[in-house]
């Protein structure tokens, strides 16, 4: 590739968002298939951990999530290279993450949150670190960084499961969209040319 092709990302329009949080739940469901979410058998024992967050201020309501930055400051901040760009998506590798919080501090969008790690509906315990508050000492839960991965485990790009990430698909007011900067830019250029 000669030049950089800007990577797609999901963004919301405050003028449309009604703050219903359908996106948060859709995000949670799609990332927790192996934790029993959306399935009938087996109780969901994990908390709702969305990777985008609906923010309400006096004048705004909209979900905030990762911009898949080209020069991802989160990856720069990660001391163990757990954050990488894969097929245009900035991905955190949970198994490598040490929970140092550097990425969350570095992100100017607040798009990274730290929560306990879950697998098969159970908290993932640490191998050694124990909690001094408890007697006998209990192994502490592993804490990892979570962020939007554009539902890359979902077969969305032209796939059978739908064309867009779950949050975009579920939004009842079409406030969310998957933006392809290239297409958007060329459309803007065409529109500008027409106005000339």
């Amino acid at each position: 590739m000669n030049n950089v092709q800007p990577k797609p990302f999901v963004i919301a329009e405050a003028g449309k968002c009604i703050g219903c949080k359908a996106c948060e739940l859709a995000c949670f469901a799609v990332h927790n298939d192996d934790n029993g979410v959306g399935a009938v058998v087996g109780t969901v024992t994990v908390p709702v951990i969305p990777r985008l967050h609906v923010i309400r201020t006096e004048s705004f309501t909209l979900p905030v999530q990762c911009r898949q930055c080209e020069n991802a400051p989160c990856a720069e901040a990660c001391p163990v290279q757990a954050i990488r760009q894969e097929e245009g998506v900035i991905v955190i590798h949970a198994e490598s993450c040490i929970g140092c919080k550097g990425c969350a501090m570095a992100c100017p969008f607040g798009a990274i949150s730290l929560y306990k790690a879950y697998s098969n509906g159970k908290v993932v315990p640490q191998i050694q670190l124990k909690d001094q508050q408890h007697t006998p000492l209990e192994r502490m839960a592993k804490v990892i960084a979570y962020k939007c991965d554009l539902c890359r485990t979902r077969d969305y790009e032209g796939g059978a499961a739908g064309n867009v990430p779950a949050c975009v698909e579920v939004c009842p007011v079409e406030a969310l969209s998957l933006v392809h900067p290239d297409t958007r830019l060329s459309r803007s250029r065409t529109a500008a040319a027409m106005r000339l």
Binding site: C20, K21, A22, L25, A29, V40, V41, V170, P172
Partner: peptide, 27 residues
């Protein structure tokens, strides 16, 4: 519905909702 149990919901093209549901409809 799978094996007599509900496993999910998806919007249909109704007169008022035209293929949309809110979070209560979905979950």
């Amino acid at each position: 519905v799978e094996e007599g149990r509900i496993v999910g919901a998806e919007p249909a093209d109704g007169r008022t909702n035209e293929g949309n549901l809110c979070l209560k409809g979905h979950y």
